[in-house]
Structures are given as C-alpha cells and as structure tokens.
Design a protein around this nucleic acid. Structure first.
Lengths: 189, 189
DNA sequence: GAAAATATGGAGGTCATCTCCATTTGTCAA
DNA sequence: TTGACAAATGGAGATGACCTCCATATTTTC
C-alpha cells in the first residue's frame, strides 16, 4: 500500500519537512494541542500541501510513529524467535511500558489510533495487534499460557495503559497492570 | 458542591428538559455525534441557556450518568457489606461489564470522563475510582488479594474496556480482561 | 525545450463552539 | 397586588479550527 506511486522530487521534500516538524513537536509534547494548520506554517509548507500528504492529524501521527511501531513489532518477532514463548510475551509487554514511558507522544498516539472510531483501523494499530496476538498464541501453544482468553483482552489492557499516561502514579500502575495480566495469563492451577 | 444556590423555578425546568433530552439521545446512541447546540433546540431551550447549565458536552454527559455512576458506587458498597471481599470485587467487576454492555452511552461517557485531560477529574470518575479502591483494599485486608499492586491498575484496565466498546468481539474480550485481572490479583502461590 | 503531468500554497468557505446582552421571567417585601 | 430587584433566557453573531479549491509553479517526459 506504499510503493504505489513514485513521489515527485518536491513532493518527497515537503513530505519530509512535515514529518521532521511533526517529530519535533511530538518530542515537545504539544502535538495534540497545536492547530493542525500550524504544522504547515512551521514546516514552511502550504495548508493544501499538508492536507494532501496527511488528510488528518491522526494520519500524520501514525506516519511519525510508523517506524517506532514497526520497531516494536520487529522486537516482538525477535523476542519470539529467541526466548521461550512466555518469557517473550512478558519481556515484550514490559518493554511496551518502557517505550510508552520514554515517549510522551507514543502513548497519546497509540491511544488516539486505537480510539479512532472511524472504521479503518490504522495500519500501525493492526500490526501491533497482530504482533501481540502472535506472542500470545505462541505462549498458548507452549502450554505456558491458558487458552481460554483472547489476545484482544491484552490489547484492551494496553490501551488502558496508553490512554491513562498522564495519571500521577502512571508508571507504577502500568507495571502493575502488566503484572496482573501476566499472572492472570499463567495456566490457573 | 451542589446545594449552593436554590435554582429558580424556570431554571430548574429548563435544566430538567435538557437532561431529559440528553437521556433520550444517549439511549439512541447519538450523543457524541450530535451538534452540541442541537440539544438546545431539541430541548426547546436557547443555546445560551444550554451553556450556562452545562459548560461542556462532558459536563452534560456526566450529569446524565451521575445517577447511574452513583448507583454503581452504591452497589460496590453494598456488595462489600454482604459478600466476602474477593467475591465482592469479582461480582462488581463482572457487573461493570454488564452495565457497560447494556448501555452504549455509559461506555463512551466513562471513557470520555476518564480521558478528559482537563485537570479537574469529574466527580463521577473520582467516586468510581474510590469505590474500586475500597473494594480492592478490603480484599487485600482479607488476604484474598495480593498487596503489591495498586487499585489504579484495575481502573486502567476498566478504562481500556470502556474505551474499546465498539470492537467487534468486545463482550468476550471484556470478560477476558476481568478474568485475567481477577486471576492475576489472587495471591500468587 | 515544450507539453503533460504533478504538486504547491494560501485565500476563503464551512461549520461547530461559545459569548454577549437586550429582554423576559420569577421572587419577595411592602 | 404591585413594584423593584435579581435571576435566567435565547439567539444573533463573533470566533477559530478545519478543509477545499484552483490559479500558479515545479518536475518529468519525449
């Protein structure tokens, strides 16, 4: 869905400028507070161009974190290949919390992408869910994890974690959620 | 924070009209899609009046569900008084899923109230969190639940459940989350 | 190097949100 | 009852974010 059209030279340049600006704003933590049009001005680009490249704020957010989400997915696959399934799952979930903790914007982005009721679930969101589903499935096959719960439950919990990122005691609570999930997932008895 | 001023007669009437209309719209499931001004017209009230009574859409949502949330809290206290702590917690969480499942609007409202980053956490949200905290604390005192996790973790998970209300397999996944939480909460070993 | 294809930018349209205040309605003391 | 004061109303219009449109500019192609 990406290699469709070879972007024209200036188009690619503007696109990069927009992404670069968006990344900065993300790191500053003001991405979701800023007028969308202002990205255009900030990036030295017209509003029309902004909208042609990224029809919505969410599209831009997803593009910014496309790489990061892909990295998370790769990490999931890598863990799955090198660790016992149960441990891979645990490590991945703990790592998710680390990532979210380290990056203001990622938490917001995940929460937003996920909560986006506009039908077409973003690519990154799908990919992440697939990675989690695979991890859980492998652990189930291993017999390390019960087989009567859906991986979607884990996604729901992750969403809760992302969405609550600005709670005072977030980090501790987030770790607790993961602990509960993992202990709950172990085959009962 | 409520018995401050004895509302004038017409004020109370308009307020009721707004709430009644909002309740209908909630049940129809279109609360969050409707132009806010239209509540005014629908309720036979001017926009100014709408905004004086409910400064934001969230304020109206909270008012509509104030009773329902209070009921949930009462239910928590009642369960706590009549059942062993662990069972009270389990029953309450299962009941939450039932409630959310039965009422379109409640899920959205809880997710919205919770996600509202505007600092002042809504009254209903606070109350609900307190109820959950009490339930967990009681179960911990009983020795039925581990003491190394915060009740906030349970709230996070509940939020995830509410926010994901429109997933295809929501009900099953939501039940799974609760199962994981409860099994995870039992004292390990 | 000219035509065709592609992309730009920003002025202006659209629309939900919210404010303001001239008018209406309710309350209460005399 | 009535007059006077306070409280509340409603809806026109300001505000401001979002998005579209298209005349112009840039790139590519032949």
């Amino acid at each position: 869905m990406n290699a469709d059209k070879p972007l024209r030279a200036d188009a690619r340049r503007k696109r990069e400028a927009l992404l670069a600006t968006a990344r900065e704003v993300f790191d500053a933590g003001s991405f979701f507070d800023l007028r969308f049009d202002d990205f255009a001005r900030l990036a030295g680009v017209g509003t029309g161009t902004l909208y042609r490249h990224f029809p919505t704020r969410e599209a831009l957010a997803e593009a910014v974190y496309h790489g990061e989400v892909a990295t998370l997915c790769d990490r999931a696959r890598q863990l799955q290949a090198t660790l016992p399934a149960a441990e891979a799952l645990a490590t991945f979930l703990r790592g998710m919390v680390d990532h979210i903790d380290a990056h203001q914007g990622l938490a917001r982005t995940l929460a937003t992408l996920w909560a986006d009721r506009s039908g077409a679930l973003a690519e990154g969101s799908r990919a992440l869910e697939q990675a989690v589903t695979d991890l859980v499935a492998a652990a189930v096959r291993d017999g390390a994890v019960r087989d009567d719960v859906d991986a979607g439950a884990v996604m729901m919990a992750l969403h809760g974690i992302s969405a609550a990122h600005d709670r005072p005691g977030w980090r501790a609570e987030a770790d607790d959620v993961v602990t509960l999930l993992l202990d709950g997932l172990r085959r009962p008895l």
